[in-house]
Nucleic acid binder design. Structure first.
Length: 153
DNA sequence: GCCAACGTTGGC
DNA sequence: GCCAACGTTGGC
């Protein structure tokens, strides 16, 4: 089982939305590196839910991968801001995965704190200027993150 | 293939 | 609003 970190802006889709819905399709990813990470996800993997673009940013929850290799429906929807006219249903360009809510942590584990605990080499999210919305989390970091996060609230 | 211009993410 | 750190696009 691998670990991941997945960012979302809470104004758009936050941990409370996920908790209310139970599971969600993680769609709208339009970055090849992030897509390729999703393609290596397996059922049973876990992902730390990261709130971005808010004060303070940080890890707020935990999710589990429950479905993989799904074509992202928004790429075929002309009304969607993620519509991709170049993508064909017989050869979808963009994938997504389904994630299940597991836990919320309160207070969140803030980016400031993550910077005290991890180097940019260990945990990419603490690197200044990092724009990738999906990042792998090495197992050694995941173990320490569980210790730092403590019991879910 | 090179590179400049431009766009996006996200912290601050 | 600014800027860092890229990714993408398009001219050549």
């Amino acid at each position: 089982m691998a670990h991941w970190l997945m960012k979302s802006e809470p104004d758009v889709f936050g941990i409370d939305h996920l908790k209310a819905e139970g599971t969600t399709l993680w769609d709208g990813i339009r970055n090849y590196q992030a897509r390729n990470f999703m393609r290596t996800m397996a059922i049973g993997d876990r992902a730390f839910f990261y709130h971005s673009n808010i004060t303070p940013p940080g890890i707020i929850g935990l999710m589990e991968v429950v479905e993989v290799g799904l074509p992202d429906p928004s790429q075929f929807d002309p009304q969607s801001k993620y519509f991709d006219p170049a993508s064909k249903p017989e050869a979808p360009r963009w994938d997504c995965v389904r994630l299940k809510y597991l836990a919320t942590f309160a207070p969140l584990l803030a980016l400031d704190r993550l910077r005290e605990e991890f180097t940019p080499e260990e945990l990419a999210v603490v690197r200044r200027g990092n724009r990738l919305s999906i990042l792998p989390v090495p197992e050694a970091c995941a173990t320490r993150l569980y210790e730092l996060l403590g019991a879910p609230s």
